[in-house]
């Protein structure tokens, strides 16, 4: 696959008895923005640091722009990989000005002043060029870190939890700023996050990582709609699970007969998203009981309990009706459900 900007094969890394990464495969097409999504401790940062060259894999290979940087016989140190990195804590050099930080990685044979000016332009910090990092706001520091990583025109850039240090209000704006900048430059980028909303909303591709493995890679909607297994389904977005039995594309469960996405025969677990669970207040079989309500303005989340004791959640847009705790309602699943053989 020479078309990949970044390719990893069978990456493995152990720290003592802890298996941080195991058999990690990754293909990132040029100009793609890939999110490496996983819970804290799943090994995603280790993968990122192996790509950057700060951690040496125990096995496997990595190639960047078609060139192998690590395999059993090759080792390219970080400075030779042409990979930019934005650190979680930004790691701006405190003793250098903004311009010096950005100019640090530019090769001597390039026109440093021009490139620094370009980068300052790109991130909108022209007026701050002579400031020191400690004089900037969090969002500005983030942009300096990005400009610094982009300045040497790297083959790809890596971002480690880039938005986790920003407060909520700032985060939304900085996210879209960062995505615009990356789109504008057309650089291949991988960012690590534990926030599935962040991954789904920003990335072109999402790679979900669990226990040191990449369990699924695909466009955000695909990962969301068709999770590879129950764990991915539970991790990405909100999910309702019910036990059932499949017969071809039909599946029987406590809610009656549902349409499944896939063909299967035998016992399965049925998964459907809360937004696919419709509530019919005065339907025929009012078997579900409202146990709790969370109102968010643009939508609301309704917690339900079935006679068997199973709990479900339904997400309703806006405020179509005022439900009350204890109210008996009937429910219906709107779209084909996902089934996982159990």
């Amino acid at each position: 696959m020479s078309g990949s900007a970044i390719q990893a094969r069978c990456l493995c890394k152990r720290f003592g008895s802890v298996r941080a990464a195991c058999g990690v495969h990754l293909d990132v097409a040029p100009s793609t923005f890939l999110a490496l999504l996983g819970a804290s401790g799943c090994g995603k940062t280790t993968v990122l640091r192996m790509l950057a060259g700060f951690v040496r894999p125990d096995g496997g290979s990595i190639s960047i722009g078609g060139q192998t940087v690590v395999d059993d016989t090759t080792w390219t140190p970080p400075e030779k990989r042409r990979i930019g990195m934005v650190f979680q804590e930004y790691a701006l050099f405190p003793h250098m000005s903004v311009a010096d930080n950005i100019g640090y990685g530019i090769r001597p044979d390039q026109d440093r002043a021009r490139r620094v000016a370009e980068m300052l332009d790109l991130v909108g910090l022209q007026t701050q060029r002579d400031r020191h990092p400690h004089e900037l706001s969090g969002g500005q520091q983030q942009r300096v870190a990005l400009a610094r990583a982009l300045a040497p025109e790297p083959a790809a850039i890596l971002l480690d939890e880039p938005f986790s240090n920003l407060d909520a209000a700032l985060r939304v704006r900085v996210r879209s700023d960062v995505r615009d900048i990356l789109r504008h430059t057309g650089v291949t980028a991988i960012f690590v996050t534990h926030d599935q909303e962040e991954a789904l909303s920003l990335a072109d591709q999402v790679a979900v990582m669990m226990n040191g493995r990449i369990v699924q890679t695909g466009p955000p909607h695909e990962v969301y709609r068709a999770p590879a297994d129950r764990a991915v389904a539970a991790f990405i977005g909100d999910a309702n699970f019910l036990a059932g039995t499949a017969e071809g594309r039909k599946v029987h469960c406590e809610l009656g007969e549902l349409i499944a996405e896939q063909d299967h025969h035998g016992p399965v677990e049925v998964m459907f998203r809360p937004e696919d669970l419709l509530i019919i207040p005065f339907g025929e079989h009012r078997t579900a009981t409202v146990t709790d309500l969370q109102f968010f303005g643009h939508d609301q989340l309704i917690h339900l309990r079935l006679p068997s004791g199973a709990t479900l959640r339904s997400r309703l847009l806006g405020a179509p009706g005022a439900y009350q705790r204890g109210q008996q309602v009937s429910v219906r699943v709107n779209n084909p459900a996902v089934i996982f053989p159990s």
């Binding site: 970080p78 030779k80 790691a91 990685g105 610094r148």
Partner: peptide, 16 residues
């Protein structure tokens, strides 16, 4: 001194 600063430097194409 955070080791991240050194890594940032390496990452920007400078040798150790």
């Amino acid at each position: 001194v955070s080791p991240r600063l050194e890594e940032a430097g390496r990452n920007l194409g400078r040798g150790p």
